[in-house]
């Protein structure tokens, strides 16, 4: 990933922005250098310019919007479906004068990304789906978030039981995902999705549209994700024509948090067109 890197100093620089799309305001963070990339969050909104943003910003100008309603903790009345969010995000690109962008969608963001690429394929360069919601099939139905209590939600989201050791300046740093800010925001997102879709994490009609996606697509999945099971990754991979799939070992629904180094190597290799094996994947 060295050739096109803007460098760590550039990738750490970010600025907040705000765009008005119709009656709704979309707040976002942006930083990095290169072709534009839209990074759509999952159940938790971004909590700052985080490690995954920095990693992507080494190679792209990253736009990380907060879905309208995700900051206030209440889905706005103008949004009644996932397709509405897809239209909003396409309008956001318009507002920011981004003609074409790479699109990374995680979880709920992946579901929105699928609708974006179906609604406006000409606007999307490369597509990355990370433990994406969206599918609901007979053999592997979509999770209903309204049925999960706090413990069940955590167990569905994360492979880590106990302490996660992350890399820090002076070595390993212990993180407690169960009691950290991230999980609290995931719970807020759970409530939002229950309000929007009654808690359902997919829709039956989406599968038949996958064949219409022509963007070069990377499907990234945690091998122990119980919220959006690995079956869904396989269906995405076998139905999206120009797709490839990478499964990250030891990660659940949030590989960018549980395996950030592996996640970024996989995604950045795809973005810069580098064919380099990454450990702990298959």
């Amino acid at each position: 990933m060295s050739a096109a890197s803007a460098g760590a100093g550039v990738a750490c620089q970010f600025s907040p922005g705000s765009a008005r799309v119709g009656e709704l305001k979309t707040e976002f963070l942006q930083g990095g250098k290169g072709a534009p990339l839209l990074y759509l969050h999952g159940l938790s909104r971004p909590l700052g310019w985080d490690t995954d943003h920095i990693g992507l910003a080494l190679h792209r100008r990253v736009y990380a919007p907060v879905l309208p309603g995700w900051k206030a903790g209440r889905v706005p009345s103008q949004v009644t479906s996932i397709q509405d969010y897809a239209r909003l995000m396409l309008a956001f690109l318009e507002e920011e004068k981004i003609e074409k962008a790479d699109l990374v969608g995680h979880s709920l963001g992946g579901w929105i990304a699928l609708h974006m690429v179906l609604q406006a394929p000409e606007r999307i360069e490369r597509l990355v789906l990370v433990d994406s919601m969206g599918l609901d099939i007979e053999a592997s139905s979509a999770t209903d978030l309204s049925t999960l209590d706090e413990t069940a939600l955590y167990n569905a989201m994360f492979a880590t039981r106990g302490v996660l050791v992350a890399a820090g300046d002076f070595g390993g740093v212990p993180l407690d995902l169960r009691h950290g800010a991230l999980f609290k925001h995931i719970q807020n997102g759970q409530q939002n999705l229950v309000a929007l879709t009654s808690g359902k994490c997919g829709e039956a009609s989406l599968r038949s549209s996958l064949k219409d996606i022509s963007a070069e697509t990377l499907i990234v999945w945690g091998d122990t994700d119980l919220l959006t099971p690995l079956d869904h990754a396989n269906i995405l991979a076998s139905n999206i024509r120009r797709s490839r799939m990478t499964v990250i070992k030891g990660a659940g629904h949030y590989p960018q948090k549980e395996k950030p180094q592996t996640f970024l190597r996989v995604v950045c290799n795809f973005l810069v067109g580098r064919n380099e094996p990454v450990e702990e994947t298959w």
């Binding site: 750490c12 700052g48 490690t51 995954d52």
Partner: peptide
Amino acid sequence: PVYNPAPLPGFNTDQSY
């Protein structure tokens, strides 16, 4: 010392510790 908003990725792998 610098504008470094989050742990910098890339120095290690997820297996490092």
